[in-house]
């Protein structure tokens, strides 16, 4: 009986989460991802100080958190990452793998935290940026054989900056919810 009750609560909670998950238009999902990638490609040419912004990652984190679906999150992360790879000077899949993991874990985390809380958003953004950078560094060393140093202090500072940018960005993206 207790198992039955636990299973019921679990199923109910999942349904409740699915029902509460906001929805976005496909065009908005694709357009924002593309805009984020293009922003990263072109804007730092004119304003060099903005090169630290990892907008594709923040967009991936946001939509994965909002959808609360690990599969949707990892697929969205994979698409964004591969698109980013196609315009980057590295082998296809580097950003794809990292953002796939980010999307998956962000969607998973959204099932455990109140993602509407700005503090939670700030911490998650900081964490996933750090995770993204660290795992990308690991992949560079492991798969590409590049012996690069991991600049911990710099990465932490940039992670804080990205987290600070993520708050207003997420607030703006909240306006795109359709359901």
């Amino acid at each position: 009986m207790s198992d039955l009750g636990g299973g019921f609560r679990e199923e109910f909670s999942q349904v409740q989460v699915k029902d509460k998950a906001p929805r976005f238009r496909i065009a908005a999902l694709a357009g924002i991802a593309l805009a984020a990638i293009l922003f990263q490609v072109y804007v730092p040419r004119f304003i060099g100080q903005l090169s630290y912004l990892e907008l594709p990652l923040l967009v991936t984190v946001y939509f994965s958190l909002m959808r609360s679906s690990p599969v949707a999150g990892l697929l969205y992360g994979a698409c964004v990452g591969l698109a980013q790879d196609s315009l980057a000077d590295n082998p296809l899949g580097m950003f794809g793998i990292v953002k796939t993991l980010v999307g998956y874990f962000a969607a998973t985390a959204s099932q455990r935290f109140n993602i509407e809380n700005p503090g939670i958003r700030l911490v998650l953004s900081f964490f996933f940026f750090f995770f993204h950078q660290f795992f990308y560094w690991v992949l560079e060393r492991a798969l590409l054989g590049q012996s690069l140093d991991f600049e911990l202090q710099r990465t932490l500072v940039i992670a804080v900056l990205n987290a600070l940018v993520a708050l207003p960005l997420f607030h703006i993206l909240d306006k795109l919810k359709v359901g």
Partner: peptide, 30 residues
């Protein structure tokens, strides 16, 4: 979820391996 994750990561790893090992360039996508 985990299966899809592994599958997607495996595909991308394969793509990476193809590029790294065989020095293959995925020119069409670029």
């Amino acid at each position: 979820n985990l299966t899809v994750l592994l599958a997607v990561v495996a595909v991308q790893l394969g793509l990476l391996g193809y590029q790294v090992k065989g020095n293959g360039e995925v020119r069409l996508i670029r």
